[in-house]
Design a protein around this nucleic acid. Structure first.
Lengths: 332, 332
DNA sequence: ACATTTTGCTCCATCGATTGCGCAAACGTT
DNA sequence: AACGTTTGCGCAATCGATGGAGCAAAATGT
């Protein structure tokens, strides 16, 4: 470990170890036995490389190689457990398979999503996993044009295979749970309110569909004023509820943990009226079960989704279908 | 956008646009005016590049260039808001400065931390920001040996500048807040318990020191059985409290949101005794203020820490000092 | 008309690692 | 001793983009 400013290359090691650059390369990338180099040379080279604190120049290496083994992932935010877990597990699973994960966070900004995709392709990523993108098709088209595989996760697109939670079934189950609890704990039977998200968004509309059919199965109608999907932020959830005084029992279906923040803020400001409220949330958070009034949450099965995603990587016969992954209902 | 499997290179574009590869290169990297190429040629090349869906091969480009503009970051986990925010803001701030952020998650595994550092150096990162590492000095030594700058964040080391929260001051303030609330709300004056973390860990011991001096300032002693630092996991926090029945008022200083999960689990199982408990937590979570008994949290100032970190990047006159960043006390 | 400058573009070496190919020495066979 | 085989290693082309150097044509000056 010298204090050199310049980095050691295989050429430096070659002259120090009295070998040729190609021998050094073979030793350091483990192909030396295949190339019939002697163990003696190999050990000499490895010792020198160790002493010099050598590490390959990936740029040079990948330029020459045919495959990069890089898998890219685009993630919108790290502000909830869902995406945090996706990123973390993705990295671990990629490493376990000998791939190099590169994750980048795009702040739900469509332009940044596209730039990030381009950037990952520039790095010769062989596959791009696009998570929660606002415009997945634009990205999968671009990938296809560059001969790069892409896979949608969490939000579906039509240009690439999409692995998504079974939002409808889980919303159906969660709705039933909330309805049941309202009846059991407050003796109240009635339609819930749907809070958070955007109807134009695929996940929101699918969840709403499950929400509606659970009501329909009980012979309940949902009027428009019970669908409060004004956005994902905590603020918008708090805003749509601001005027609502639950003088009688009521129940809420909350569409994400971000919206849940707004709901809980509203709920905690209700005083003694708060006992009239039960709610459940689509998405999981470790503190969720301790929030008063919360009867359950839907945890999306990140491991199953990513396992499926990895099973599609490096296959070229994958149709742009949707793969539905069941969720886990956490009952509190 | 053809369906080519091979990627388009500047050579492909050169022949299609009837220009030389160097002209194409100059056009596409924006140096064409400096190289006195005509606007006509430039436009022709750009049009062809667009049509072919070209994106540079970063490997080739960086191999030839002198600087990579890559800044790497190592982060232990994405399982709490603190590190999620660090990663997210780091990416945004790096991009705003024209750098390329690469973040990788190391699961608090010392070996993986080291491998990840080596990997980032292999990618020619010019600076490595090492966050929450178990062995920061090993990494900064390795970086120094490769002529790569490194900066410690969150946990200090001796081999590189370290930007850390002012844990002692914030712990002092948080302790006082909890003590005050115990007195105001329960009429109880007495020593708190310190829950979570590991004493060998720098942050834990510094926070404990602030915790102790706040008590000392009030003439209170802390006995060893009030320091319950058996690890960071929710399980270990729940375990150390399992036997504890708060038949009288009591207060807890919780050392992280992960430990807080365990504390809240314990607290929610206390039944009517739970009214005897007040606690505060070092670290912030959006649901924290809604947890019963929680009197306040410390939010570390991620923006200030990262701003400081970026101000040190690409400077070679930075001594391996510690820079303390004040925290924000959130009072509930 | 000739010299000088400017414009517009291309040639080619280079970055560091990889790998097909080939050569020489050592070893084995008859 | 002559010949084939194995062992051990190096040569040099290559990946794609970059940029210094240089050349020819056009523009300008005298």
């Amino acid at each position: 470990m010298e204090k050199n400013k310049k980095k050691t290359t295989i050429y430096d090691i070659a002259s120090l170890a009295n070998a040729s650059p190609s021998a050094v390369s073979a030793v350091l990338n483990g192909t030396w036995e295949k190339r019939r180099l002697s163990r003696k040379l190999a050990e000499r080279v490895m010792r020198v490389a160790e002493e010099q604190g050598y590490s390959v120049n990936v740029q040079a290496s990948l330029l020459r190689r045919e495959r990069s083994n890089i898998v890219g992932m685009i993630v919108p935010k790290y502000d909830n457990r869902y995406f945090g877990e996706i990123a973390e597990q993705f990295e671990a699973m990629a490493r376990a398979r000998g791939m190099f994960p590169v994750v980048t966070c795009t702040q739900r900004d469509p332009q940044l999503e596209f730039e990030a995709a381009r950037e990952l392709i520039s790095y010769q990523a062989e596959c791009l996993i696009v998570t929660g993108a606002t415009d997945p098709d634009r990205i999968s088209n671009f990938c296809a044009g560059s001969g790069v595989q892409s896979i949608n996760l969490d939000l579906p697109g039509s240009g690439a295979p999409s692995i998504i939670s079974d939002n409808e079934a889980a919303a159906f189950d969660l709705t039933n749970l909330i309805l049941d609890r309202c009846q059991q704990e407050m003796g109240w039977i009635g339609p819930l309110r749907f809070v958070g998200g955007r109807l134009a968004d695929h996940n929101t509309s699918t969840r709403l569909s499950g929400f509606l059919s659970a009501h329909k199965a009980r012979g309940m109608e949902i009027s428009n004023d019970h669908v409060l999907a004004a956005g994902y932020s905590a603020e918008s959830a708090a805003r749509v509820l601001a005027e609502f005084q639950p003088n009688e029992p009521t129940g809420l279906f909350v569409n994400s943990t971000i919206s849940l923040e707004g709901v809980v803020r509203w709920h905690s400001g209700l005083g003694r009226l708060s006992k009239n409220v039960r709610y459940g949330c689509f998405d999981w958070d470790p503190f969720g079960s301790f929030l008063p009034g919360n009867v359950g949450m839907v945890e999306q099965d990140v491991t199953a989704m990513l396992t499926k995603a990895f099973s599609l990587i490096n296959r070229n016969d994958v149709p742009p279908e949707r793969y539905l992954v069941p969720c886990k209902l956490r009952v509190f």
